[in-house]
Structures are given as C-alpha cells and as structure tokens.
Design a protein around this nucleic acid. Structure first.
Length: 204
DNA sequence: CACTAGATTTTCT
DNA sequence: GAAAATCTAGTGG
C-alpha cells in the first residue's frame, strides 16, 4: 500500500480532513497495538478561523500548528483530556485536522480495558475517547505521524468510503457557523449525529 | 431519552 | 480568574 506523502498534509485543512476519512490511525505501546479507521474529523485554520487555537498569536501551546505538516498536535483540555490533531498547511501557515472518531480495528480488547467499557461504539467515538483508547497523551505532541513512530497514520487507499456528511464543528463558541466537520455517512462510530443530516458530498 | 453538573489543568486576559 | 476543539455519572420524565 502506497504510504502518505508529506505533501498530502501540506494542503488546506478542509481538503486534508475530507481525504483522511477512511484511513487508519495506529498506536503501538510495547506489545499492545491498537488501531482504528478514521470516521470523523474537523478542520482548523489560523487567523481567519476564530475557533482555532492559532486564531490569535503564536504561543507555546499552538506553535506546533505553525510548523511542518504531517506531525501530531496533542493538547490537554477540560482538566483531564487529550485531543489529537494532525498538522496541515505549509510550514509557517497554521492548520490542523482534529481526529474526532475512529472505528476500532485492532486491539479491541485493549481498548475495552483502557476505556472501561465493552460497548464497541463507545471505544473511540469522540476526540477524547479515541486518545484514551489508543493511549495517546501529551508525550505524543509534536511527533512525526508518517514515519513509523508509536502513533502514526497508515494509508488505506483501497478503503471503501461512504458519502461524507458536512456539518458545523462541535464544542466551540466562535466560528461555529463554519461547515468544517466531516464524517462518514451512517457510520455508528461517529461521535454525534446531527438532526437533519447536513449536506452530503462524495469524493474519490 | 433529555438535561445538568462536576472533574481538573492549561492558557490567555 | 475564566474559559476551554470533552466525557461521565447522575437525575427526572
């Protein structure tokens, strides 16, 4: 299977977000390997995106978003939760894609133990749930996710993809009118359905 | 099923 | 000092 090129991530966040759906996120912790198919994402930008951490100035926390694409941006929020992003856009231009939900593939038993539930659809159907299921923490911030590290993306170009649903982003105050959340239509592992399903688009 | 509140820490004002 | 790209447990219908 052809791996991801760095240039895949060097594009606008919304493009990378949509095209990332269907590919696989892998975590290796010692002998424990867990993985899941990406079924839900959100795109974030810079100064033109008030909901983004990079909306204002460059700080210690958000500086990863300004750096080279294809790296991880893991941050801590709400007192106890880590959220995982992949950096997008050319170096110098801030951007990231938040991984919001996975369909569990490998290491389901390990995920169940880490998450404390046996319900498959509760293992990784949310940005903080999936980091818990894959044991992703602040230690994984600012790491290459294309080059064989313990947390990495593996391309699956052959994955059959459902149509993509586009909605506004979740859990934000400003910029909530922007249609920058994408998920695979009808997938039970998506974090939250929307009442009238948003606009659906297809891509190849 | 819908809604509420608490957890708990980092960042920015 | 307040808010935050969230989740869980609890209450009540």
């Amino acid at each position: 299977m052809r791996p991801f090129a760095r240039s895949f991530f060097e594009r606008p966040s919304a493009v990378v977000a949509v095209e990332l759906l269907g590919h696989v996120l892998v975590s290796e912790r010692g002998r424990e390997r867990t993985s899941g198919r990406i079924v839900e994402v959100e795109a974030y930008y810079g100064s033109n995106d008030p909901a983004s951490h990079a909306a204002k100035r460059r700080t210690a926390r958000n500086s990863v978003m300004f750096g080279p694409p294809g790296r991880s941006y893991v941050y801590f929020t709400y007192g106890s939760q880590y959220l995982l992003n992949v950096v997008t856009c050319p170096s110098g231009t801030p951007g990231a894609v938040l991984i919001r939900a996975l369909e569990p593939l490998e290491g389901v038993a390990v995920m169940m133990r880490r998450r404390g539930t046996r319900e498959r659809t509760l293992l990784a159907s949310g940005p903080a749930r999936l980091t818990q299921a894959l044991a992703v923490t602040g230690e994984d911030n600012d790491r290459d996710v294309l080059d064989g590290g313990p947390v990495r993306l593996e391309a699956d170009w052959a994955a059959t993809r459902s149509p993509v649903v586009v909605t506004e982003r979740i859990g934000i105050r400003e910029g909530s009118d922007l249609p920058l959340r994408y998920y695979l239509a009808g997938n039970p592992h998506v974090s939250k359905r929307v009442k009238p399903e948003g606009l659906t688009v297809t891509h190849g």
